[in-house]
């Protein structure tokens, strides 16, 4: 479900790319420091986007370090961390606990991983710190599960729950920006949900799994229809974004919202047109 909110690297300036990576590395480091090395699998580009967005909005002061790490043992890398990084780390754990951060193709059970118990414990602590977000995540997941069980084929209805989940996450604290952030997160969440459905459509049809895009699949205009729906979501999302007084890192944010999010879609579309099996794309950097 995650990994669609990425940068379009070729279109990004070098300095912006390094800064983006610094936020990403900062999140990784924070996860390890707070929740142990096994927590690093909860790292995502999506939460990195959230960090950059909220940091830009609240102009949080970031701590900058240059260090080596296990993944990059030879060259020192930049790390940027601030209070938002901490928030994103906590949210990453919660999302992961609810089986959402599955970047892997085959379903691996969380309980098989070392530190699964620690994750549960960590989650409980986070629930006390952020009761509203955790409640919204749980509630919307429940509603989504129900919707899928009832085989509700309306794409807006199904996507809405994930939208609400993300919307709640994007509201860092209740203030003048809450409404805008909620809407931004809502439409981004819907985009992610639909994108995920598009990604999985062939597999779901074969296996008879739930997929609200099935009814569009029969049409010869399936790809165009999906693109149209995805565009609608990004249109609303970006409209909300442009209303926010974000100045810092605006190029990175716009790169993601206007270009980066289409990376996977375009790759899938092209490979499906060419009839080849869609390859695993390298999402790293």
């Amino acid at each position: 479900m995650f990994g669609y909110i990425v940068i379009n690297k070729p279109e990004l300036k070098m300095k912006d790319f390094y800064k983006y990576r610094a936020y990403y590395c900062g999140l990784c480091r924070m996860l390890k420091a707070r929740y142990g090395i096994s927590a690093q699998f909860t790292l995502s580009y999506d939460m990195t986007f959230l960090i950059i967005l909220l940091t830009s909005l609240y102009e949080s002061e970031s701590k900058h370090e240059r260090k080596r790490c296990i993944v990059h043992p030879l060259k020192k890398h930049d790390f940027l961390q601030n209070e938002i990084t901490a928030y994103a780390a906590d949210m990453s754990i919660v999302l992961s606990y609810h089986h959402l951060l599955d970047n892997w193709r085959d379903e691996k059970s969380l309980s098989g991983l070392a530190g699964a118990k620690a994750l549960k414990r960590a989650c409980r602590k986070i629930e006390k710190k952020y009761p509203r977000q955790c409640k919204e995540i749980k509630e919307n997941l429940r509603l989504l599960e129900e919707c899928e069980k009832n085989n509700n084929n309306d794409i807006d209805t199904a996507a809405r729950f994930f939208g609400q989940l993300m919307g709640g996450l994007f509201v860092y604290r209740e203030d003048v920006w809450s409404e805008s952030l909620r809407r931004l997160g809502f439409y981004l969440g819907k985009f992610i949900y639909i994108m995920d459905a598009y990604d999985d459509i062939e597999k779901d049809i074969k296996k008879g799994n739930y997929n609200p895009l099935k009814k569009y699949y029969k049409s010869s205009r399936f790809t165009q229809d999906t693109e149209r729906m995805l565009t609608m979501m990004m249109a609303e999302c970006s409209r909300e974004f442009e209303k926010l007084p974000c100045l810092v890192d605006i190029d990175i944010l716009r790169n993601i919202l206007y270009e980066g999010v289409w990376t996977r879609f375009e790759k899938l579309r092209n490979s499906r047109i060419n009839g080849e099996k869609s390859k695993e794309i390298s999402l790293h950097g």
Partner: peptide, 9 residues
């Protein structure tokens, strides 16, 4: 809104 987004892209 969608047209505006496409324009920006």
């Amino acid at each position: 809104q969608s047209r505006r987004y496409q324009e920006r892209r």
